[in-house]
Nucleic acid binder design. Structure first.
Lengths: 207, 207
DNA sequence: AGTTGACAACATAGCCCTATATTGTCTAAG
DNA sequence: CTTAGACAATATAGGGCTATGTTGTCAACT
């Protein structure tokens, strides 16, 4: 009987994740207030009461859904950053895209409501994941030859990560399509990685 | 009698500019709807009817004020970019600060109203000035040795200008203070200008 | 375990009406 | 040429009130 226990636990987790995925898409589409528990339940393929069996109330559902989304975005960014076979430029673009680009074209008028609810209901988690994203980017830079340039330029990898994050923010705001976002992000990443190519062409590349 | 004519014309322009300056600060403080003509008149030191003698209505006043602000921001950015005694990094930071940094810390809840009014009442002018800002930045890059790097990186100066503009947007949104904005902008500009220093240290600097 | 249907409590959207503020215009006065 | 004061037309803010939608919880059902 112990053998089935882990399977059941995984089952429960899978259910939760599926529900959270549905909640994320519904909240992203309608915002916090205009998204109803009924809509989320229908999107998740469960009954409305099924939601209340897993989450105490709408606020907790939103918080968990937001954290789930942030967590998966961060995981995707981490995965992109750890693709050692790709260039740093490509990894940085992919990481910023995984982190910020997911909902670029799909933001409607309820974006303000979403931001407001996010900061008021899970501001700490939001800041936490943003810090972890920047830390991951900074770590990738630290592990690359670009760290050599940082020192000579009087900067630290965290500064670069923060600046790249700001660029991603700005592009998310001004881009009409994901292609536009990726194009701008590629330009920024290429400029940030320029010292790498210069080092390489000078023969001072040491991995 | 012709001698006094130009002086009078300049007087009128000065008056208009003073009124527009006052209007800009009032609109920036209260947004479009919550700012009253009475408030603008008091800030400008004229009567409410004085405003209607110079501007047909509130919408025209807002449009002219916005264009005046954009024009002066662009002029300040241009001035910063043409300070040949400064490094390109410093000029780019100063230009972005002049363009985007003016109201960084002072944006309140009425920012949405401002953006909405700006795009609906003078969206064309807004886009026009934004394009001119990016063109000015691109021109400064073209006139610098950085243009050499652009070609080798498969980019054009306009791409860099657009990316820098996006960074300024993102920092404007996420920065709590102007110092934070300037710090982030400096990091981005330094990275964008990194190829310059590398070229210089390799002795391939040709002005 | 989850679903269904029902329920009170609460929030929301809409409408109407009122009071107040603001716009845009006019005339008289300095 | 500008201002002050007054004015109708209009926009806005607020209260009350209703209709509708939503939340959170319950018991009965499968």
């Amino acid at each position: 009987m112990n053998i089935t226990q882990p399977a059941e636990v995984e089952q429960v987790d899978m259910r939760q994740l599926a529900v959270l995925d549905a909640a994320v898409s519904v909240f992203a589409r309608y915002g916090f207030r205009k998204a109803s528990m009924d809509e989320v339940a229908r999107a998740a393929g469960v009954s409305r009461q099924g939601l209340y069996l897993q989450f105490a109330n709408k606020e907790e559902l939103f918080r968990k859904a937001l954290e789930h989304s942030l967590s998966s975005q961060l995981a995707a960014a981490d995965a992109a950053l750890s693709r050692q076979e790709d260039s740093l430029e490509r990894r940085l673009v992919a990481a910023c895209d995984a982190w910020s680009g997911r909902f670029v074209g799909s933001l409607n008028a309820d974006a303000a409501d979403l931001m407001c609810a996010s900061t008021s209901l899970a501001g700490a988690a939001l800041a936490h994941y943003e810090a972890r994203f920047e830390a991951a980017v900074a770590q990738a830079i630290t592990e690359s030859p670009l760290r050599l340039f940082c020192a000579t330029a009087g900067l630290c990898p965290a500064d670069l990560a923060s600046a790249l994050h700001a660029t991603a923010r700005g592009l998310k705001q001004s881009s009409a399509s994901r292609e536009e976002f990726l194009k701008g992000m590629t330009v920024a990443a290429r400029m940030f990685c320029a010292p790498l190519n210069q080092l390489r062409s000078r023969g001072t590349f040491d991995g």
